[in-house]
Every structure is written in C-alpha cells, then in structure tokens.
Design a protein around this nucleic acid. Structure first.
Lengths: 155, 155
DNA sequence: TATTGTTATACTCTATAACTATA
DNA sequence: TATAGTTATAGAGTATAACAATA
C-alpha cells in the first residue's frame, strides 16, 4: 500500500534531515535543543525561563541548563525582569540574532533546493497530501491519548 | 515558495512522528536506539556486537550498553560465538521477536491510517515527490561533505 | 501560599581511551 | 599484532525533588 510507502520515505527523510541539521548546528557550536530555545526567543522576543519551559515543553530546570550554556557561548543573555525581581528575561545577543538570520536563509534555500527539478503542480499536490497526513497523525495521536486518559481513570 | 512549505511540513511531521514513536516505545519499556538494534537483529539474524556497531553506526562500547539493557529487560540474549571465543552473538528472545512483529503490524496500520481520505492518485504523486526530495537531500549532503573534505585537505 | 529560578542527584545516549582475553 | 568486548570516564539532553528569594 502506498500509505506505508509514504510513511517509510517520511521516516527516512526524518533521519537524514535530522543528521544534516545536527551537523550544521555543531559547526556553529549549537545543538537542537539550544537552537530551539534561540528560535523561540527570536520569534517571540525576550521571555522568562518559565515561559520558555512552557514553550519548549521542557522542565524549568532544564531551561536553566540551556540558558547557562547559551550565555557562556555568547548566543543569549539574561537581563533582570523590569517588574518581577524573581524572574529574568532571556534575550538574544547580536551573535544569537545573526545566527538565527543565517539559519532562516539556509532553511529557505534548502526548501528550494529540495524540489528543484519537479514541476510546480506535483509539488503542490504533495504539499497538500503532507498537510493532510500531518493532520491525520495529530488526530490519531489525540485520539490515542484520549483513550489512554480514559483507561487511566477507569483503573 | 512551495519548497519551503514542504520542508516546513516535513519538519513538523518529523517532530510529531518522533514524539509518537517515543511514546509507543516507552510503553513497552524501549527506546529508539534499543529498538533500532532489535530491528537490525530481527532482520539480519544473530550478529556480533562489532557487526551491530557497524550497522547502527555507533561505537562498539555503546552496543555493550544497549545489549546489557536489552538483556536485562528480556528482549535480547547473548550466546557464545560458535567458533570465536572472544565474540558473542546477540539474538532476540521470544519476547523481542514478538515485539518486533507487533511493531511491524502497527507501522503498516499507521501507514494506511495516515492516507485515509485521500485519493490514490494524489498519494502516488506525493510519494514520488517525497522520493525525489529524499534523493535531492542525500545528494546535497554528499556534495556538502565532499566540499568539506576538500577544504580539510587544503588546510 | 504560589511562583521563579537554582542546587543536588540521576538516567539515557553517545563518545574516547585504556585494558583483557582471544585470534 | 589485530580484534571483540568491557571497565573507566565524560559531556549533552532531560527529569524529579528540595530549597531560596520574591510575589
């Protein structure tokens, strides 16, 4: 069945994409999770660590670790929160911002490279199929979690 | 450009697929790397740890860790190599084999579920596009590595 | 009392280096 | 001398629990 074929290709793509990303990040002295944090700050602006923990779906304690590392390597900076003396605001340094800009450009160039040689119509069809697949997957996961939550209540 | 759109969806899918897989594996007391090892043994048959290290692209030392854990949890087993007393053969237990069988079935069912509601023709087009994208990506990565190797030689 | 962030501790993935037993 | 696997050690991702300072 072609559903399995698509899933297999998707999984293969995931592996190669991840390996490629990891290599690129390593070259800059970054890792996936640290970059994710930078990305969130880049798009949302300065945020407290608690907000970042929520956005990254990670414990506040782990955010401390990430920000420590990003501060030590000059990508991010902690500034005191203007009104709440318990909290800090995490912001990007110039270096952090320029890395984010460069990565955005690379991302777009990669997107264009990957479909080079394909006709626009097929690419559009494929994009629609992928959107559908993503939605189906999210639905399945949600249903699955709902069933498990139910089971947990019953027991 | 739709290339970027496809790439974005691909990355989103990677994240959700990985999260889903991790949850499923956790439920069974497994992790991605341990499952990968089981998968290789399931398909190639009993193998030495050195062979597994090569297949998984991981250090022999790490294979020791993985096999230790899989043996402790009853998914795999070490048996002495028949002719080489230095080596061991890693094989699946009945439990390991039945987990692999169950996961194969789930994988196929997921593949079918993901394209439910789509017409076969679009799915076929999308599958072709994805194959193309995977090949392009592999080409780009290979070119990139070749350039870096060259640069390393020059310096 | 609730929240923000941090010290302490631990588990998993993964790597390198040094070492043992066997080829 | 080369190979198979293991002990020792380490760094990154990530988590929980206990605790300080502040709200």
């Amino acid at each position: 069945m072609s559903g399995t074929r698509i899933l297999d290709t998707l999984l293969a793509l995931s592996l190669v994409l991840e390996a490629d990303q990891t290599r690129e990040l390593e070259r800059r002295g970054l890792t996936a999770s640290k970059t994710h944090l930078l990305w969130v700050v880049h798009h949302r602006g300065p945020a407290t660590q608690a907000q970042l923990a929520e956005a990254l779906q990670v414990t506040p304690r782990h955010v401390t670790t990430l920000v420590d590392a990003l501060e030590a390597t000059g990508f991010a900076r902690r500034t005191p929160h203007p009104t709440d003396r318990r909290a800090v605001l995490v912001d990007l340094t110039d270096r952090g911002r320029s890395v984010m800009t460069a990565m955005t450009a690379e991302h777009e160039s990669l997107g264009a490279e990957l479909v080079r040689g394909l006709d626009a119509e097929s690419v559009a069809v494929a994009a629609d199929v992928l959107d559908h697949v993503l939605q189906r997957l999210q639905t399945l996961v949600a249903e699955h979690e709902a069933r498990q939550a139910e089971r947990a209540e019953t027991s």
